[in-house]
């Protein structure tokens, strides 16, 4: 028998843990977006060594599994005397990893803006900074929106990995409760529903933004 009461009884615990899911993925997103923008500009920089470093960064953070990155941050940082709480190690790992993907998404979008767009502006005597701000970024933002939303949704889902460093977020909490109640089906259905709600909200937000950027 499907037990609704198990879900209702345990919902407060699940929601409590959801706060950490939201916290880790929310802060991770913020860090990832900011770092991603910086990295993207660095990768497109005409100065060789800057773009090299950015490319190296992307290769590393895209090439090593996030779980391994998390464990590295968790064990490695204290071993060299940097003592940060597991929560911050988790946020940093997720944010730094997302930054690599976001940088590539933004770079792809900027490359997709036809060259003639900037050329027309340059021919009018526009400053490069203005060309970025007024011509390139608005168009790149629109182009990147679907992939960006994709990446952010992915980020919410991979936030379940941070349980490996002892943070009790939604997935970890579900595991504990289902072990204690012997009701895994109900609990995981509830967890799935919560993830779905978060990500539907994100997708909706993305769609609204896309509409605003439409022309």
């Amino acid at each position: 028998m499907f037990s609704w009461s198990t879900i209702v009884e345990n919902l407060p615990y699940l929601l409590q843990a959801t706060r950490f899911t939201l916290l880790v993925s929310g802060l991770g997103m913020g860090l990832g977006l900011v770092m991603g923008m910086v990295l993207c500009v660095a990768r497109l920089s005409p100065i060789r060594w800057i773009s090299r470093i950015a490319a190296l960064y992307v290769s590393f953070f895209r090439g090593v599994p996030l779980l391994v990155q998390l464990l590295l941050a968790y064990y490695f940082l204290p071993s060299i005397g940097i003592d940060i709480p597991p929560l911050w190690a988790a946020v940093c790992s997720i944010g730094l990893c997302a930054a690599a993907y976001i940088a590539e998404i933004l770079r792809g979008a900027l490359i997709a803006v036809p060259h003639g767009q900037a050329e027309a502006a340059a021919a009018l005597g526009m400053h490069p900074f203005t060309i970025w701000k007024r011509i390139l970024i608005p168009q790149a933002l629109k182009i990147s929106m679907p992939s960006l939303v994709n990446e952010l949704i992915m980020l919410v889902k991979v936030s379940s990995l941070v349980s490996a460093v002892g943070i009790v977020e939604l997935t970890r909490m579900s595991q504990s409760i289902s072990a204690a109640t012997f009701r895994p089906l109900e609990i995981y259905i509830a967890a799935a529903a919560i993830y779905l709600v978060i990500n539907l909200a994100l997708a909706g937000l993305g769609q609204a933004l896309e509409k605003r950027l439409d022309y």
Partner: peptide
């Protein structure tokens, strides 16, 4: 320009 190069978002 041959391809106009108007800015599509304006």
């Amino acid at each position: 320009f041959q391809q106009f190069n108007l800015w599509p978002h304006m």
